[in-house]
């Protein structure tokens, strides 16, 4: 459903649509918050949840004419600033410039990261475990082999496979194009 349509229903008190909005933007907003609070994952998640609570409580008063997405990020940003202000009240000014959320390029990047994350989750089980341990937990191939009780060679194969599949999932168009070209050639 389109965001504005969602929002109309949320204003009427439709919790399912509210959950839909939450699920749609949660990861992007989390990434944004995560960056602003120096990588404190618990805090980032809390700031996003609080932002949604604020929005629900004020839904009747809010008239969103521009994009719902921008609105979400503005409220989230205010929440982050409030939080930082409480923490740094006597120490330093808040670095406002690093946090303007309106940049379309930032949104694009975030969307790409979220897409990649979802793609990782769709990888076959062993492939995913291997990749997660290497990419997110920075384990060496040998450490991964030990922890999953597989051979180092399997780790190597699975890593190659994981990357290849991610590439295919991320640009299905390019890939189809590639196939078309191949078919044309032979």
């Amino acid at each position: 459903m389109e965001d504005n349509n969602l929002w109309e229903n949320i204003k009427k008190g439709d919790r399912n649509r509210f959950k839909e909005l939450h699920d749609k933007y949660f990861h992007q907003m989390y990434l944004y918050a995560f960056k602003s609070v120096d990588g404190d994952s618990g805090l980032a998640e809390e700031l996003v949840s609080d932002c949604f609570i604020k929005i629900w409580e004020n839904r009747k008063k809010l008239n969103i004419e521009t994009s719902v997405k921008h609105y979400l990020f503005i409220i989230l940003r205010n929440g982050i600033i409030d939080h930082l202000r409480k923490q740094k009240v006597f120490t330093e000014p808040i670095p406002m410039d690093i946090m303007a959320p309106g940049d379309e390029k930032d949104f694009d990047d975030q969307r790409q990261y979220v897409r990649l994350y979802m793609a990782v989750k769709k990888l076959p089980e062993q492939c995913r475990r291997v990749l997660e341990l290497a990419a997110f937990e920075s384990l060496s191939y040998q450490e991964i082999a030990d922890s999953l009780q597989i051979s180092k060679n399997t780790v190597k194969t699975q890593m190659g496979r994981a990357y290849k599949q991610l590439k295919e999932m991320l640009d299905p168009k390019d890939f189809n194009f590639f196939l078309m070209v191949c078919e044309g050639l032979f």
């Binding site: 990434l31 996003v48 990047d109 990261y113 994350y117 997660e132």
Partner: peptide
């Protein structure tokens, strides 16, 4: 490079966030 920026999502849970809101 993108995976480097994606790793932080590993500790996030949309499910728990919604649980808290609801």
């Amino acid at each position: 490079e993108k995976l480097g920026n994606t790793g932080s999502l590993q500790n996030s849970s949309s499910l728990l966030s919604w649980e808290k809101i609801s």
